[in-house]
Nucleic acid binder design. Sequence first.
DNA 1: GAAACCTTGACACACCCGTGCTAAGGTTGC
DNA 2: GCAACCTTAGCACGGGTGTGTCAAGGTTTC
Lengths: 119, 119
Amino acid sequence: MQGLTIQEAAATTGWSARMLRYLERVGLLEANRSPGGYRVYGAAELQRLRTLRELLGQHELGLSDVAFAKRLRDTPELADAVAAWLDARPHRPQTVASPDWLRFEQDKCRRLLADAAAA
Amino acid sequence: MQGLTIQEAAATTGWSARMLRYLERVGLLEANRSPGGYRVYGAAELQRLRTLRELLGQHELGLSDVAFAKRLRDTPELADAVAAWLDARPHRPQTVASPDWLRFEQDKCRRLLADAAAA
DNA sequence: GAAACCTTGACACACCCGTGCTAAGGTTGC
DNA sequence: GCAACCTTAGCACGGGTGTGTCAAGGTTTC
C-alpha cells in the first residue's frame, strides 16, 4: 500500500479523518483505494488537502462554496446562466419603449391580489 | 412614487414580500427607496426578479450559491484562488523529485500522533 | 386625518452543513 | 492469527438558510 492511510493523512494535513471522508462525499477530493478498499493518500492529495485548507481559511469560505465553484466550472451552461443574471444587463431594448409598463404591471398585480382575496 | 410597492412586486414576480427583503439583505437585489423609505420596484427590478426565479428553479440552486457567484465575480483574487485550487495542477516540479516524501510524511505523522497520545 | 400600506426587528421552525462519536464488520502487517 | 487500523452507516448537535408571522411605529393617498 504505497501512500498514507486516512489517519496519517489527517494528521499531516490538519483535517480529521471524518472530514477527509466528507470531502470525498461532496466531490471535492477523492483518494485512490487499496485492493481491500482502504483510502490511500499520495503526495498530490496531501498537497491538495493543505492548499484547500488555506483557501478556506484565507477567504472565509465554506466547503459548499468550493463545491459550487467546481460545479460552475464543470457545467458551462450553468456558469453562463449565472453570469447572464449577474451581468444585470439593463435589459434588451425591446418592449422597453412602452411607457405604460407601469400601469400594465399594476393592473396585473391588482388582478392577482383580487383573485387571492376571493379565494 | 413611480414604481411598484413591495407587495405589488411580490404579487407580479411570485416571490413573497418577505423574500424580497431577504434578497436585499443577502446582497442579491436591492430596490430604490422613496423619500419616506419605501422600497420602489421598477421594470428592471421586476425583470431581474423573474429571471432569478427561473435561474434558481432550472438549475437547482440556492440563493447562497448565486450570492457566492456574485462574490466570485466581484473579487477577482478570490476567483483566482479558487480556480487555482480547482485546476489541480499536478503541482510545480520543485521538491517533487525527492523519492522519499513518503517516508518523510510518515515520520512526521508518526511524530504528530505520538505527541497527541502523550498529551 | 384615517385607512391601508410600508419599515425594521424579533421569535419560530424545518432543513442542510460541518463535525464528532459509536457500532458492526472487513483489511493489513508483523 | 491477532492487534491495529480501515470501511460504511447511523445518531447527535450547533449554526446557517429560507420562510412565515407578529409588534410597534412611520408613510402614502385620498
